[in-house]
Design a protein around this nucleic acid. Structure first.
Lengths: 180, 180
DNA sequence: TCCTCATCTTGTCGGTGACAAGATCAAGCA
DNA sequence: TGCTTGATCTTGTCACCGACAAGATGAGGA
């Protein structure tokens, strides 16, 4: 329903109606809309990490290929579930004190650290600060691409599209940071 | 009021009350909340472009420095007006058929094209497709950085912060794409 | 048998965007 | 001067929303 209606149009009452239950029933399971959205994000981060892991598992065991694959998984998730993706990264709608949110979020983050490490080594920045800087650079690029994609800022650039996957960037960071 | 209350807490009625006017008065000027938010975005894109232009005007006339300066202006705007920034890039809340939205948006976009051109040349990709690819790469990185910043994903990395500007990336694309 | 607790229902509250009908008032014109 | 017009605002109302309160229901255990 989140992807169907969008976050703005989604309401506890519509969810209850769809389930065939009274308008106040959901509030027993999720005292507040905030709790429900946080539960969405928990599941979202799980799916998010799985999407990246799945893409990486299908790619050659090469740093640049793994970096590209993770980005593909990142963008595939964002474009498949744009509203969930946006929700997961909208701080003020989520309860980050909920202990259920930490582990899935960290699991997704771990993927980023993993793919950034070879880049840091290649750039001779294999220190804690260096790794953090490289991770920030890599993450920013993929994250920005995802946001621009789901906000429709990237598609209209296209030539006569042959339905090409939106996540095959014509110029990717991997080829810049990890040249052959 | 947008930055003070956030988009979720902002309402036509609160705006009317603050102005000291009846709850239905704003609807004459902005028939719909959507129209008001679109007007916000129009002004937002103006301020956004101005923020980038201002930073660029204070920087040396060097491609890498201009690229860094534009990024600084981009991030300064996003961190100063996070709710407006998010609104501007949330497609489904805005009326992109409103003719007032195109010019300011294009003006902001023009800055990106401008700073991406030297990078395309340096990378020997000075064709229409190449320029678009480079612009997408540069834009994605800055845009992602901005989003991560306003969603609080970047700050906690920090050492004992000396209140350093959040937009001084420890490793910036300019130094990777435009080495001395 | 009775208690307890999770679950759900019903009813209500204030707040919200949207709409309708009418009041007010200044500008323009005969 | 007096009328009209149109922009602006008010008042009142509607359905919808999240939240809360009070109570019905029903299963499992003491």
């Amino acid at each position: 329903m989140l992807e169907e209606l969008g976050l703005e149009e989604l309401s506890l009452r519509k969810i209850a109606a769809r389930v065939g239950v009274s308008h106040a029933a959901p509030e027993h399971h999720f005292p507040t809309l905030r709790h429900l959205l946080t539960a969405f994000a928990v599941e979202g981060f799980r799916l998010f990490a799985a999407s990246m892991r799945s893409a990486m598992a299908q790619a050659p065991d090469d740093p640049a290929e793994q970096l590209r694959a993770a980005a593909r998984g990142y963008l595939a998730f964002a474009s498949t579930r744009p509203h969930l993706f946006r929700l997961m990264f909208t701080a003020n709608r989520l309860d980050w004190d909920d202990p259920a949110l930490g582990p899935p979020s960290n699991a997704a983050h771990a993927v980023l650290e993993e793919i950034s490490l070879p880049v840091a080594k290649r750039l001779k920045r294999d220190t804690p600060e260096g790794r953090a800087a490289v991770e920030q650079l890599v993450w920013s690029q993929i994250h920005g691409h995802a946001h621009l994609l789901i906000d429709g800022k990237l598609a209209p650039e296209g030539d006569g599209g042959t339905g090409c996957e939106p996540f095959a960037a014509p110029l990717d960071l991997a080829s810049v940071l990890l040249p052959d």
